[in-house]
Nucleic acid binder design. Structure first.
Lengths: 217, 217
DNA sequence: CACGGACTGGAATTGACATTCCATTTTTGC
DNA sequence: GCAAAAATGGAATGTCAATTCCAGTCCGTG
């Protein structure tokens, strides 16, 4: 039931087993992936059956297996789906304290709106799948990288502009921010309480702020 | 396969369905729990079958079902096992910057020794089980609380002693530290690289240090 | 030493789920 | 319009894993 994820290694990056899709086909495929993403988000990979997805997406067995060789392939598509979702959301990098704080507030608001139910899309998948197959693990690394990139670019830009002290480490701060988000969401989800996420993000942001060169008045 | 976790609610805290155990019985029970903890740590709850545990622990079906009503009960015992493991490890609360740093170093060393394979015992369980049943969720909250308590007590003691600035929030710092640990381990596990965990802990610790009142020389 | 409860063995049952198979319909390229 | 490819339907298969059942053995206690 998990073993199937151990044979996905062939393609190091992502199996681009693209077929010739008609517009109707693409629509169906997309619907399956989106539905799977939603169901998996709620019940986890192992807790999600193909039948669940079929019922939710209103498709038949053949349709799922027409577009995906097996469950592992569907899961891979879901990871891609989530990785891609980060991009268009934020058009520009958060390259100021204000923008970084907006990023944090946004994360906090999202969890509150969800009533603290459910974890991080990528974090949950990573926790469940990181050890199942090397191919999936690499896919997850790349997905996280896409989330981290804007933060890192933003912080690097700030330092390049001289807004951060030269001894500040933008890469480390970006990683710390991402880690605070992941850990904060996990604890917040478990406790059904925003405190952990808020404390984690606030603490790291305080550190960012203390690296900011305040223009002498 | 997951559904079974939805009927564990009856006992809000932990089903103390203690039976009359002889010393032999307790030994067998302990062996089952320890083995299950190890296997689950490696393959996740859903990825672990009772048969896996049976084989590893050298016990028969009857033995497992003699001590645990079902898989959910076994998982509950595993959570308890991990929660209890935190206690004796650190006899005293980390109530100084040095001790806190030792705590961080210890976490980092542990991950390195594991070659970054595997996540946090509790974190992985929380991510997988937080939404499966209210009973398990509460159990996880309590388990995390047992990990957090020493940190919080230590930081509170520091402030009480006047070593931390009065405006510093020990509870928030303790939460931030725990979140940094969780998120850091997750990213480190996924990337097979210590950077995220180190960056997360270092950043939060820097914030702790900046809240320390340096004795004027 | 006999009795009852704790403990253990292992086969049998049952249901769920991923995947396969065969048949049918729809769309595309020419 | 027509052959080929794409898309769809849905039943059938086979495996695997949780749980149940029926005995049997060990051990403390009266």
């Amino acid at each position: 039931m998990e073993c199937q994820f151990q044979s996905v290694l062939p393609s190091p990056t992502v199996s681009t087993g693209e077929k010739n899709l008609t517009s109707r086909g693409r629509a169906t495929r997309d619907r399956i992936v989106e539905t799977a993403a939603r169901v998996i988000m709620a019940r986890g990979v192992a807790g999600t059956t193909i039948q669940d997805v079929m019922a939710e997406a209103q498709v038949s067995t053949s349709q799922v297996y027409h577009y995906f060789s097996d469950k592992a392939a569907l899961v891979a598509a879901v990871i891609e789906f989530h990785a891609g979702l980060a991009e268009p959301a934020e058009p520009a990098d958060p390259d100021s304290v204000e923008k970084l704080e907006r990023w944090c507030r946004n994360a906090i608001t999202t969890q509150i709106e969800r009533d603290f139910v459910g974890g991080c899309e990528l974090g949950s998948l990573a926790s469940e799948l990181a050890e199942t197959s090397e191919g999936v693990r690499i896919q997850l690394v790349q997905a996280f990288a896409r989330w981290e990139a804007p933060l890192r670019r933003g912080l690097r830009a700030m330092r390049a502009r001289g807004e951060l002290r030269p001894d500040a480490d933008p890469d480390a701060l970006a990683l710390a921010l991402l880690a605070a988000l992941q850990g904060g969401i996990l604890l917040t989800q478990t406790r059904r309480n925003i405190d952990p996420l808020r404390a984690a993000l606030t603490t790291v942001m305080a550190q960012v702020r203390s690296a900011v060169i305040t223009p002498s008045p």
